[in-house]
């Protein structure tokens, strides 16, 4: 039995200590956000935050996590009450299939917590571990910028929500 702190709440987990966090989040705690993409640390679909850092949940055994803060996308906000970053992703309609998006948001969250107004280049470099196959990158970049304090989007930029 291990105790994991996930999204601010302690959870008793009965699993082999060598189990990667991803499986425990999804199957034992019923959290959908972190996704299986490769299990190899190559795609970032499983990204969550541990003590404020973006990490690959597919490669972290739960044995190293007691006493540390795990944050998943469920901990940021909800459909009814989304976090600023989640809200920005909706505003920018930054998803196609959306499979990569929870990982994207968590990695971006880790960036914004350390650097509230990153430059375009800093965002791109920071987001590099996370893959998106649908090609939603431009919108993801816009959403992160929208959420960052550094950039305020003028209304003119939301032209796309105006009819034609």
């Amino acid at each position: 039995m291990l105790t994991l702190t996930v999204n601010g709440r302690p959870h008793r987990v009965d699993a082999d200590p060598a189990t990667p966090l991803l499986y425990v989040l999804r199957n034992d705690l019923g959290l959908n956000g972190a996704k299986f993409g490769c299990g190899l640390g190559q795609c970032g679909a499983c990204t969550v935050m541990v003590d404020g850092h973006a990490v690959f949940a597919c490669l972290v055994p739960i044995s190293v996590l007691p006493g540390r803060d795990v944050m998943t996308i469920e901990g940021l906000g909800s459909e009814e009450d989304p976090s600023p970053l989640q809200h920005a992703f909706v505003e920018e309609q930054a998803a196609q299939c959306g499979y990569c998006i929870a990982g994207m948001i968590m990695r971006a969250q880790a960036l914004l917590e350390h650097n509230p107004s990153p430059s375009e280049e800093e965002i791109r470099r920071h987001m590099s571990p996370n893959l998106c196959r649908c090609g939603t990158h431009m919108r993801i970049l816009r959403a992160i910028k929208r959420a960052s304090q550094g950039t305020r989007f003028a209304d003119a930029d939301s032209e796309k929500r105006v009819v034609r």
Binding site: D16, P17, A18, P20, L40, L59, V60, P61, S63, V64
Partner: peptide
């Protein structure tokens, strides 16, 4: 896996767990 190569795992149980989750995939 959870119970890998005897003596090494006994000597460093945490290391063995980390290896299983983190390294063994590749």
């Amino acid at each position: 896996t959870a119970e890998p190569a005897g003596s090494a795992a006994d000597a460093a149980p945490t290391g063995a767990q980390i290896f299983a989750a983190t390294c063994s995939g590749c």
